[in-house]
């Protein structure tokens, strides 16, 4: 009988996520089509309507397409995080989550491994999107492609942890549709993904404040600054902090002493 090995367990969990991803090729294309539609169709329309001033980290006027690139990277990660969450709810309903949760390793480690495996998949999607955007002629700083990696990882972990938390409280697959209305859409549209905070300020101070303190906005700003080789320390702290809070809450909710209260065993 073998003893548990965290490294091998993580490898197994990551391979399973990758295999599931490769088995669902349409998921890969859907993940790319969604931001590309925003970039090519919506951005073309909004470009005329939304004038952008020079705001950090940009040092000159930029096109709307350039502005929304970090937001669309965030969109890929947000949808991927929710997809992972959906897959966990499915695993719980189908019972395969029990195999993971009865592994002789700490539960927080198993959840973190699952989270990191999901983020790895989202990084592949994000870079595929960046390459396509560059091929479409969007002015993306190529030297920024490397420093943006840790920002993508951190932002991916934050939204993935939120997905884990949701998976711990959603009892049935059918209830997941509500997540679209109450989590994904507000999080995306009340963020700096599509317009800067000062634009929102013109419409409503309250909405602007929500936009500014939305953890998803902070993740996007982290990515935006990293693409230009800069660190936005507030965004870094907020993304890491909110990710940690989401993860701790998910680990708490997955604790065996609380599971039966949610009406399920795994």
């Amino acid at each position: 009988m073998n003893g548990p090995s965290p490294l091998r367990a993580f490898g197994g969990i990551a391979r399973r996520e990758l295999l599931r991803f490769l088995n669902q090729r349409e998921r890969f294309f859907a993940a790319l089509v969604r931001p590309l539609v925003w970039l090519i169709v919506f951005a073309a329309g909004f470009r005329a309507a939304l004038g952008l001033s020079i705001i950090p980290p940009y040092q000159t006027y930029i096109t709307y397409e350039v502005y929304i690139i970090p937001g669309l990277l965030g969109m890929i990660q947000l949808f991927n995080g929710m997809q992972s969450s959906l897959s966990m709810v499915y695993d719980q309903e189908m019972g395969s989550m029990r195999v993971l949760l009865t592994t002789p390793l700490p539960r927080w480690f198993l959840l973190l491994s699952k989270l990191m495996a999901g983020v790895t998949v989202s990084i592949v999607q994000a870079y595929a999107f960046l390459v396509i955007a560059i091929l479409f002629g969007i002015d993306i700083p190529v030297p920024g492609l490397l420093p943006v990696l840790p920002a993508l990882i951190l932002a991916g972990l934050m939204v993935g942890a939120l997905g884990l938390l949701l998976a711990s409280v959603i009892k049935q697959l059918e209830n997941f549709a509500g997540v679209m209305n109450f989590v994904i859409f507000p999080m995306f549209f009340l963020s700096t993904a599509l317009y800067p905070v000062w634009k929102m300020q013109e419409a409503s101070a309250v909405l602007a404040a929500i936009c500014e303190w939305n953890p998803f906005s902070q993740g996007i700003e982290l990515i935006r600054f990293a693409l230009y080789g800069q660190v936005n320390w507030l965004a870094l702290a907020m993304t890491a902090g909110s990710g940690l809070v989401f993860f701790l809450a998910a680990s708490w909710a997955f604790d065996p002493s609380r599971r039966f209260r949610a009406g399920r065993t795994a």
């Binding site: 548990p4 091998r8 399973r16 088995n23 390793l105």
Partner: peptide, 24 residues
């Protein structure tokens, strides 16, 4: 309840379990 991943092969399911249990 059945706990196998329906979309993976028998081998992929079993390798996943072996990895969780620390087997090379």
């Amino acid at each position: 309840a059945q706990t196998l991943d329906l979309d993976l092969t028998v081998q992929q399911n079993l390798r996943y379990f072996c990895a969780l249990r620390g087997m090379a």
